[in-house]
Each structure stands twice: as C-alpha cells, then as structure tokens.
C-alpha cells in the first residue's frame, strides 16, 4: 500500500482535526438543562391524541405527519435518482462483477476451486457468491420479511414503526434476491414489481392524508377521531403504507445495485 507524501499531508490534516474538535467540543459537551415542557405534554396527551402508545410513532405520524410526507418524497426522489443514474449508465453492475479484474480469482482459476463455490455455469452471473450464502439467505429471507411486517404493524405498541419495519423488509428482499439457489425467483425481487409497489404506496399515502378533509379535519387529520376515543387505526394504516413504501424503495435500490435487473 503506497501512500505518497504522508508527512506533508499529515500536518494539515491534524490541524484541521484539532480545529474541528475545538469547534465541536462545546456542542458535544454542553450541559444546559434539557427543557421538559414538550416531554411532559406528550406524556400526558400523546396517547389520547393519536392512539399510539409509542410516543415516537405518535409524533411522526400524528403531530408531525406532514414532515413524514416530505420525508417519503425525499426517499422517492433518491430512489428515482439512484435508479436513473444506474440504468442510464448502460448495463448494470452485474457486468462489473464479471470483468476479469474483479473476479480474477474466481473464474480464471481452473484447478483450484473453493468447496463452497457454485457450479461452473452459474459462476459468471453469480460472481462473488457461494453455496453457503445462497442457502442461508434463501432460508432467512421469508423469516426476515415476516419480522419486518411485525415491526411495521406493531409500531404503535412497541419499538418500531413504518420506517424501521420497511428497512427490515428491504433486507428481506435483498436476502431473497441473493438466495435464488433453485432459480425459483419470486416476484418480490423484480425491479418493476418493487417500483409499482412503491408508487402505489405513495398514492395511498396521499389519499390517506386527504381523507381527514372529508370529515372536517385538516390535512393529515385523523378521520377516525370522530368515531372512537382512541383513534389508533389511522396510525396502523400509515405505518403499513410507509413500511411498504420504504421497503419497496430501499429494496428496489439494493436490487438495482446488486445487478439483478433484467
């Protein structure tokens, strides 16, 4: 590992680090008393206002749901940008894996093959993978998906919620995409299906956000609070929609980066 001019670049680096540390140290070590007013209000009224025991869910789907809408738009734009950049640049990463530089140790060595490696004809399209990886991810994939939906749907009662459950669902999708040992592909790893799920979830989110207007509430008002005292159904629905959207979006990006788009 050659590192030219180590000494000449070390002094500016150390100076910059000390300067940044001096600026940030008061921020990191501040001990002004934390205001408790908002905490006390949420502790008193959070459950009654939104129906969610989990106060974090009560904030980001109840009091600050508008902010969550903006957040999902950012996610949508990021997914669109990533997919746009990756597809615009011609054949996706799978080609990068099969160029001789990256897989030199895998498909050019005829005599010495690791015992876990795949059959020879699959080694082109599944470079850098082994039987071990494919078996384990194929078995774990559905379990991870199930856990993701649990985290998503119980977000109002326990730690979790739409974003967290969605990320777990996305890793389940990645597992399914990696573990196609028997070539038994599922629809969930196809980029077109994931894109459609994400778009449909965004449409549902918009519809849910204006559903309160028909009943005399504001934008993102909770329509159920006219009928029941504990309007938790709206939070569950928003959690499920956001979970589907985040799971499909991040899974879409990961599948595209894995290079399984055909």
């Amino acid at each position: 590992m050659k590192r030219p001019s180590v000494t000449s670049s070390a002094i500016p680096l150390i100076t910059a680090m000390i300067a940044v540390a001096a600026v940030l140290l008061p921020i990191f070590l501040a001990d002004t008393p934390w205001p408790v007013g908002a905490r006390d209000y949420l502790q008193e009224n959070g459950f009654g206002d939104s129906g969610a025991i989990n106060l974090v869910s009560a904030i980001y789907l109840g009091y600050r749901a508008f902010d969550t809408l903006g957040e999902t738009i950012v996610l949508l734009v990021a997914v669109g940008g990533t997919i746009g950049i990756l597809t615009r640049s011609g054949a996706i990463l799978a080609e990068g894996y099969t160029n001789p530089d990256t897989v030199a140790g895998i498909d050019s060595s005829e005599e010495e093959i690791p015992s876990f490696s795949l059959a020879r004809e699959k080694r082109k399209s599944h470079a850098l993978r082994t039987h071990l990886l494919e078996v384990v991810t194929a078995i774990l994939g559905p379990i991870v998906l199930l856990f993701g939906f649990y985290v998503m749907l119980y977000g109002h009662l326990s730690p979790g919620g739409g974003f967290q459950g969605g990320v777990v669902v996305a890793s389940g999708i990645v597992f399914l995409g990696l573990g196609n040992r028997m070539e038994s592909s599922t629809k969930l790893t196809q980029a077109a299906v994931l894109g459609r799920i994400e778009a449909a979830a965004f449409l549902l989110l918009i519809l849910a956000s204006i559903s309160g207007i028909l009943l005399g509430k504001g934008f993102f008002g909770n329509p159920l609070s006219r009928f029941t005292a504990v309007p938790e159904g709206f939070i569950i629905m928003l959690n499920a929609i956001i979970g589907l959207k985040v799971g499909a979006g991040i899974g879409f990006m990961c599948i595209a980066i894995l290079g399984r788009e055909r």
Binding site: A78, V79, V167
Partner: peptide, 20 residues
C-alpha cells in the same frame, strides 16, 4: 428517524454517483 432516512438516501445517491 427523519435524519436516518435522509442519510440512507444521501448514501445511496452518492454511491450511485461514485459508480457512474
């Protein structure tokens, strides 16, 4: 929660740009 999601978006976009 917002910051984490935005961070993931920024990372994914930056990685795509790096690949390009």
């Amino acid at each position: 929660l917002t910051a984490i999601v935005i961070g993931v978006c920024v990372t994914a976009l930056a990685l795509a740009l790096a690949f390009r």
